[in-house]
Design a protein around this nucleic acid. Structure first.
Lengths: 325, 325
DNA sequence: AAAAATATGTTAAGCGGTTGACATATAAAA
DNA sequence: TTTTATATGTCAACCGCTTAACATATTTTT
């Protein structure tokens, strides 16, 4: 494999000049640039990114920490983030915390050890202090770190509001909401707030169920939903915190012979690919994942470049009506 | 950030000894190991993987090249591969070729530039020669490189056989198969072979449709399927090359008022998460993604370690019967 | 008691690119 | 013509870890 030195020799220039060309630094004539490029082509030169990273003590890799690769929401995020990162010359080091503090910690160490440019954090099992110590730029997506870390989120509260309003407008009077387990605060918890607010204002009765982590990890919500629908048989409107839950609710409804949307209306959250593949298709709250990903990468890039970045970016959601309402 | 030198000073030993401890090389006494570990803990030492990779001119990162992150099949693969890699001390550099030769080439360059330990290739838009040149260990999953590269695949032909036999056993007499577009050979093409074979042997009439890349990339098969079902209205048994296609076929059937499985039976392929979320749930050919991922990582690891590895590993598939048959 | 195995130290080159200090040469501007 | 901007060369340190060569000391084995 050819090195910078080889390119210097081949082009009749020095490493200094070649490096200048490579990094667009200082004075370079078109002639020199041309010569260097020719030489690189002839030698099929491939810069050694590892050496580069070492000498700059920073790579162009972004550590992407998610709690769950297979969860449709994170799939969308990963996909969009990869694309945005690629566009800006970053690579993605994929870190799956599996919602376990230990694994998340290890992956954080791996990120620092690999001198990532920054971390995009979609997981949240680790205390803030850990991030304070490592001295790496972090941007969160739909997570909250209480130390001023730049965060990108969607308007979760508004999502809850839209869902409740829609269900009530559809004539539902016995609502049920499946939200996140308490514990650490997450932006997604605000969905519940918005939902409660509207129900209160409109004097509509509602019940609440919080999902456990084990369900989140395994994406097995079916039994829980079946149980819930048995417990609250009068339920005629359901707002759940993800399309995965909504899809599994449909399965449960099938078993319980509850016609949707006739006897039960369902609204999910995220608007992922899956939501158009169920029968009926899911009415859901659209989360602008693409834009969130783009903004997250931009924030990271700007932040790494020393720019001042907004600490909080909230993007609008919207209701997408399909077949379950 | 503490360096090896700091650890050496702190432990009262030399870099040589510390490095020996870190890499489990040469003679080390338990006392020395203890001292080093204590010092590392006190200094909160984190080895600089970049420096390590530079000096070994190889990192512990695996370049994972997929053609499509959002496609349910690759999601499963990515998820399993991440886990297996993590278990063996490898990281994942996520590369999405988007089924474009140019992007795949670029990502290959990125992999070499980043001195990945090896590449796991689930994409296949680039000619073999490219891989011959780069001198990096490659393992393919469900792809074929005509240069002896180790490949992991499932028994695709058998999958086609099982599907055809099942449909025929269910009484279907007008079969339709949706397979891959021609062009480059892929193991998945063997599904079609197996299917044809059984239909021929059993004298059952069948039609074939090949999907275009644009559909694969966008995962928009619905219109195509609707058209196909219009073109072959007598179809009573359908075998498609992925669960995504099967799920979208169900949507098309909904619009065309074709009852499944009463008037049309459908068998998908892959057995991904999605297949239990449609209505009815998908009968499908189970691909042992977890095992394939594990084997792929093992092959890569062994191959990198200089061991001789099998050039071809074929894993069994099985029919999973659910609601569409 | 001699030989071999074990354990650590010392030193320094090497991985490949970055960067700064300083020198020098040419072209453009004042 | 002098000054200034532009362009390149030279040299060497540095990023942090690995590794080989060689020396030396302590144990263990024969």
């Amino acid at each position: 494999m050819a090195t910078l030195k080889d390119v210097a020799r081949e082009s009749g220039l020095t490493v200094g000049t070649v490096s200048r060309v490579l990094n667009n630094r200082g004075y370079i004539s078109d002639k020199a640039r041309e010569k260097v490029e020719q030489a690189m082509k002839r030698l099929n030169y491939q810069p050694n990114e590892v050496a580069r990273s070492l000498s700059k003590s920073s790579s162009n890799t972004i550590g992407l920490i998610v709690p769950h690769i297979r969860h449709p929401y994170f799939i969308e995020m990963i996909s969009h983030l990869e694309y945005q990162a690629y566009q800006k010359g970053y690579r993605i080091l994929l870190c799956n915390s599996r919602n376990m503090q230990e694994k998340e910690r290890e992956y954080i160490d791996i990120c620092t050890g690999n001198k990532v440019a920054g971390i995009i954090l979609c997981s949240g099992t680790v205390p803030v202090e850990v991030f304070d110590k490592i001295g790496i730029t972090v941007v969160t997506i739909e997570r909250f770190l209480d130390n001023g870390t730049a965060a990108v989120e969607c308007d979760n509260r508004q999502g809850g509001v839209l869902a409740a309003e829609k269900l009530i407008a559809c004539g539902c009077r016995h609502l049920l909401h499946v939200g996140n387990i308490g514990g650490v605060f997450m932006p997604a918890d605000m969905r519940t707030e918005g939902f409660r607010e509207v129900c209160g204002r409109e004097h509509v009765h509602f019940e609440e169920i919080l999902t456990e982590e084990i369900q989140y990890d395994s994406m097995m919500y079916e039994d829980m939903l079946e149980e819930a629908l048995r417990k609250y048989p009068e339920t005629d409107g359901l707002f759940v915190n993800s399309d995965v839950i909504a899809a599994q609710t449909l399965q449960a409804c099938g078993r319980l012979h509850i016609p949707v949307p006739e006897r039960l209306k369902i609204i999910g959250f995220d608007d992922v690919f899956l939501s158009t593949l169920t029968t009926p298709q899911l009415t859901t709250i659209h989360q602008p994942a693409k834009e969130m990903a783009e903004i997250a990468v931009n924030l990271l890039h700007d932040s790494v470049s020393g720019k001042v970045v907004p600490k909080r970016t909230v993007l609008p959601v919207r209701l997408v009506e399909r077949g379950t309402t």
